[in-house]
Design a protein around this nucleic acid. Structure first.
Lengths: 349, 349
DNA sequence: GTGAGTAGCTAGAGCGCTCTAGTCGTCTTC
DNA sequence: GAAGACGACTAGAGCGCTCTAGCTACTCAC
């Protein structure tokens, strides 16, 4: 009873039981060629019988490569969670393992990154990284770095993100196609991508011949910001449609509209941004712009792996290294909050 | 340029530069006694200068203990995220590091647990574990296991969770105190804790002398389930108040109520369960029952550490081991969706 | 002056793996 | 039948740390 949990078996134990060398067991366990089918079976059986489980600390230490992909993320951010899920899914088929290091209120990103370095990850993937450019550069000197979901200043890191301008234009074109002309943009304020989205909105309106209709309403990235904007909009007279900085803000808009008797989409069309979980809620069904977290994740893993392999490849003839930055085209997800301007004349599809 | 990222410095490198032994540098880096203040400073300086960073793989392998706490969680679950944050916060002061292993759509809990074992964690903490009792028992034979947020069948694992019966009673007592009598429970269907909450509801109603008012409306754990229930409620005639299985279901209820012109809380009071992020949204302000993820996390870490230390302590005189299960009392969070039955006579506080 | 105690340091044996450089026996090839 | 190739296996040197045991020089009590 005092030995409730005994020391886990090692390669040595398996080797002894099988009457072969440690090295051979290692070969069998790793599934590499170099053992006869017969011994392979026997060793595998004994290993299973003993409950042998490779010790990843030792394995990592002894191997010349760790095949570890470090990922930092904010635990409470659903978008980060989606990307992280995608990274797991994309990394395993390529033979890489993922080390998650969370950024929380008691654990800043510097600490999270430190952990990745201590584990000797081969690359660091920073989701929505809140890292100072200087620190980013410094990190990039130690291992390949991929920033996911945001632009980054540093020329030494890879970036995988969605094109804000394109996303906004998709939304505007959709609304214009539905016959709307007075399309207001609810701004994101100080939030990361808001400048890009605001500029994208202006350009898209201009392109649609609606330069005279350009109207940016101050906002932010929370539901409350959206709700405030909605109240001002109602007071000032409703436009045809609204393009919100993000889904959260759009949810605030919708809430106020519903409570004030403004029907969406009969009275006004609303488009969000992000295609977060909330946009898909059956009672919300928000039309929005999707950043496709899964694809972002896939590309981010590709970037990371490419950098790793360039680095470990022979340095003599430098392989052509692809672009530092991959910008994805977001796409429009049409749900129930947008509709043609005058249902009577245009029909609702 | 071919050596863009050079091999990170080791203890050996620092020792050579400082003209001392590896062991002494180790002593300094770990901050344990055994070095003079003078050498300590010098070594630390050189280490910083070289950019030395301990290799956790080697450290883990060499030490007799890993001081690692393994945590499995569903990445996209906000409640899990809250608990994980709490675990990080509680573990570090005790000198334990956290290894996160995510459960995703491409990575089941067995795989997640496997990873924890390969890292030789000293305990496994399973948040909202979807693990078969048999597998749980098997796991518990290998290391201490703490299940967080859910009851568990196995007598060999620790459990830290909130008391559903108490939570429901708090909600009912609150509503009764506000003068409500016709209080309907929207059921959770097949969801984990729904039986406990349903029974708690019945008991609490009985206790309040409202046995004749007991009414359980079928539901589930999503917004849609809540919305369906709301529609049926409106058709059948509104009760005084509703206690929902969880916040998500309550959000569905609120949405339908608002759209149908039912005023909350004037016409009906609504109480959710979980105190998830959504309940706190400024435009929702849902009265709900909080499970206090932070405290759950703290207690879970305490359980884990206690088991670890009992195990590593001398097995001769078994230390008294506390209860396997800690059940926390949830508490009521009063927000804007509950109100006294008749504001005119009772006042709203 | 001797022995004990102590602070500050080092040597060296692991930890559980991977990987290189073999060895040994059997099969081909001309 | 000698040379070479190949498949199956082993020995042993690390990987970068921690930890025990021991060594040296210095202090102090008696």
């Amino acid at each position: 009873m005092s030995d409730e949990f005994s020391r886990p078996p090692t390669l040595e134990d398996v080797a002894a039981r099988a009457g072969v060398s440690r090295a051979l067991v290692s070969i069998v366990i790793r599934g590499v060629p170099g053992a006869s089918e017969q011994t392979r079976q026997r060793v595998l059986e004994i290993a299973a019988d003993l409950g042998y489980r490779p010790d990843s600390r030792a394995r990592l230490l002894a191997g010349r490569r760790s095949r570890l992909l470090g990922v930092t993320m904010a635990l409470n951010n659903p978008f980060h969670a989606d990307v992280a899920e995608g990274i797991y899914a994309a990394a395993e088929p390529l033979g890489y393992q993922v080390v998650l290091s969370a950024v929380t209120s008691t654990r800043d990103s510097a600490r999270a990154i430190e952990t990745l370095l201590e584990y000797r990850c081969e690359a660091a993937m920073l989701i929505g990284a809140l890292v100072r450019p200087r620190a980013l550069d410094e990190l990039a000197q130690q291992l390949p770095v991929v920033v996911v979901g945001q632009p980054a200043r540093s020329p030494h890191v890879d970036v995988v993100r969605a094109a804000d301008g394109v996303g906004v234009r998709l939304a505007i074109d959709h609304l214009v196609g539905l016959g709307h002309r007075r399309i207001v943009h609810i701004d994101g304020g100080k939030a990361p991508a808001s400048t890009a989205r605001r500029n994208g909105y202006r350009a898209a309106m201009q392109r649609a011949g609606l330069a005279d209709q350009i109207a940016v309403e101050p906002g932010g990235d929370t539901e409350e910001d959206g709700a405030d904007a909605a109240r001002r909009l109602i007071e000032a007279g409703l436009p045809d449609a609204v393009l919100s900085y993000n889904d959260r803000s759009a949810v605030g808009l919708l809430d106020v509209f519903v409570r004030q008797g403004v029907d969406v989409p009969d009275d006004i069309s609303v488009v969000g941004y992000d295609d977060s979980q909330v946009a898909r809620l059956p009672y919300l069904r928000l039309t929005t712009i999707s950043q496709d977290a899964t694809q972002l994740a896939e590309l981010a893993v590709q970037h990371a792996v490419r950098r790793i392999e360039v680095r470990s490849g022979d340095g003599s003839v430098a392989r052509p290294v692809a672009d530092r930055e991959t910008v994805l085209a977001p796409h429009l997800v049409i749900r129930a909050t947008t509709q043609a301007r005058s249902p009577r004349t245009t029909g609702t599809r």
